[in-house]
Design a protein around this nucleic acid. Structure first.
Lengths: 149, 149
DNA sequence: AGGATAGATGAGAATCTATTGCAACTTGGG
DNA sequence: CCCAAGTTGCAATAGATTCTCATCTATCCT
């Protein structure tokens, strides 16, 4: 698992610093049950409850930073704000099937997709950070419902 | 190509209406060169220039509606706001490779992904609307640059 | 064709997510 | 141990999207 030591090394390499806030954020995501993801607000509240408050701006800044470093994945699910989760390699790597009506989201795994993503990035000379298949669909329940969208 | 007649039929079926605004929006997207996509603002301005102004609220409402009907694809690229494009089947269906630093975006095609998406949705009993692979990466130019993120 | 009705539009206000400016504080390097 | 550059927190701000509501109109019914 990605360690605080690697985080520090990677930050320092670029002239940046390991702060207690960054360390805390990394640890929260590492301890999150598989398949869970947090929004900036979620993380903020969670830390408040734990008595380890970090300002919302710092949270936004670092979520973005860690996503750009490839440590976190930035997910655009259906709620209208971004969610983040730890970026895991092959056996844990997964994708999302989202119902556009009720927002129910199912995770699924598929190793081929990650391979496709890696190949495509490489072909164009890009350095891969994350790849995610997003499927927008209507779940069985919503298909049966007569309610408007 | 998806016709105004089908749009009307599909709307009426659900108790909704074909309005001149909806017709106009559909036509704009149908006439868009392949690979182009518009934000709500883009569409609004484009129509203003053409002297066919539609209010921004109506544009937002209908972009969302048409995406939920599966007529448009909602793309979350790197600019911080959504983009829309016509939702095309197999030979035109494509995905996006995005540089998280400079936002440069490359389109690429891959029929396997669409098949995977369809299969996954079907397996869960979901009705597929759209599926898109999003690759976040760093482009060659940004890899060479020493600038911060 | 004419009327009724539920749905749609437009304009602007309101909401919400995310970013930014700045002063004070810290980290990492020398 | 000290300094320069990076970070943080707070408040203000920006930007995208949604909402409210009065007015209008596409459809359906007769």
């Amino acid at each position: 698992m990605y360690s605080v030591t690697s985080l520090k090394a990677e930050l320092n390499e670029r002239g940046w610093r390991l702060t207690p806030q960054r360390e805390t954020i990394l640890q929260v995501f590492q301890n999150l049950p598989e398949g869970q993801h947090l929004s900036a607000e979620d993380l903020h509240n969670l830390l408040l409850e734990d008595g380890e408050a970090i300002s919302l701006s710092t949270i936004y800044r670092n979520l973005k930073l860690m996503a750009r470093m490839g440590i976190l994945r930035e997910l655009e699910l259906a709620e209208g704000h971004k969610h983040y989760e730890i970026n895991q390699p092959a056996p844990y790597h997964h994708h999302h099937l989202i119902c556009v009506r009720c927002n129910k989201t199912i995770e699924f795994k598929n190793d081929t997709i990650l391979k496709t993503g890696a190949k495509t990035a490489q072909k164009e000379g890009y350095h891969l950070l994350d790849c995610q298949l997003i499927i927008h669909a209507i779940c069985p329940t919503c298909q049966r419902s007569l309610l408007p969208m």
